[in-house]
Write a protein that binds this DNA or RNA. Structure first.
Length: 201
DNA sequence: TTGAGGATTCTC
DNA sequence: AGAATCCTCAAA
């Protein structure tokens, strides 16, 4: 017997990010050190057609990974503090990707809590793009990692759970352009999505 | 070389 | 509501 789960194939990612994004819900982000978390919130970012995408103004050293082959991890640094993780989608030179915004920790919780001392509850471990990356230990050294070959021990796999049939679809968060495109998907009524405050609405 | 801004998080 | 914090990019 080998690994019970195998990485999603390259072809899964070789589509428009708006097609890939909702299907990444309920998939599992895994690290070779035992950390695993179920993806519950994502956003799609297209290439030149999408003013909100990092790739909109063309290839730069920062976003070069987005213009590479699909199925790789694009990790970016922002606000001077946080890392964001994306799955590169579409074709080479398209500059498309899906931002992994939130996940439900499944295993390796001890390592996640160690990486995120600020998290008071387990639901705070990965309920946001910066939190997710920090909990999973993803930083610049993982930019360009191949999720299909697992060349750096990080991948996205399926445990057989299908994507939700009725995900919540809404505008993307934290952007200033193309703010009305409904390119954010999250699992309905899930306690680990971003933006939740304990008892506020 | 410089200035402006950012796919956020945490605390007050 | 505001601070933290620094990389990235384009312009000069």
């Amino acid at each position: 017997m080998g690994e019970p789960w195998s990485p999603l194939p390259r072809e899964f990612y070789r589509r428009h990010p708006t097609a890939v994004a909702p299907e990444l819900l309920n998939k599992i982000l895994v690290r070779a050190d035992g950390r695993a978390a179920r993806i519950v919130e994502v956003e799609a970012y297209a290439g030149s057609e999408d003013p909100a995408a990092h790739s909109h103004r063309g290839k730069t050293p920062r976003n070069a990974t987005m213009f590479g082959p699909p199925g790789h991890l694009y990790v970016y640094f922002s606000y001077g503090i946080h890392w964001g993780s994306n799955a590169v989608c579409g074709d080479i030179d398209e500059g498309a990707g899906v931002l992994l915004r939130a996940a439900e920790p499944l295993s390796g919780l001890d390592l996640m809590r160690e990486a995120r001392a600020a998290a008071k509850r387990d639901r705070d471990l990965a309920s946001g793009p910066g939190k997710l990356s920090q909990a999973m230990g993803l930083d610049r050294s993982f930019d360009g990692a191949d999720l299909v070959t697992m060349d750096r021990g990080v991948s996205i796999v399926s445990d057989g759970t299908p994507p939700p049939v009725d995900p919540v679809v809404s505008p993307r968060i934290g952007i200033s352009k193309a703010v009305d495109l409904p390119w954010r998907w999250h699992v309905r009524d899930h306690g680990h999505v971003s933006g939740k405050r304990s008892t506020r609405t």
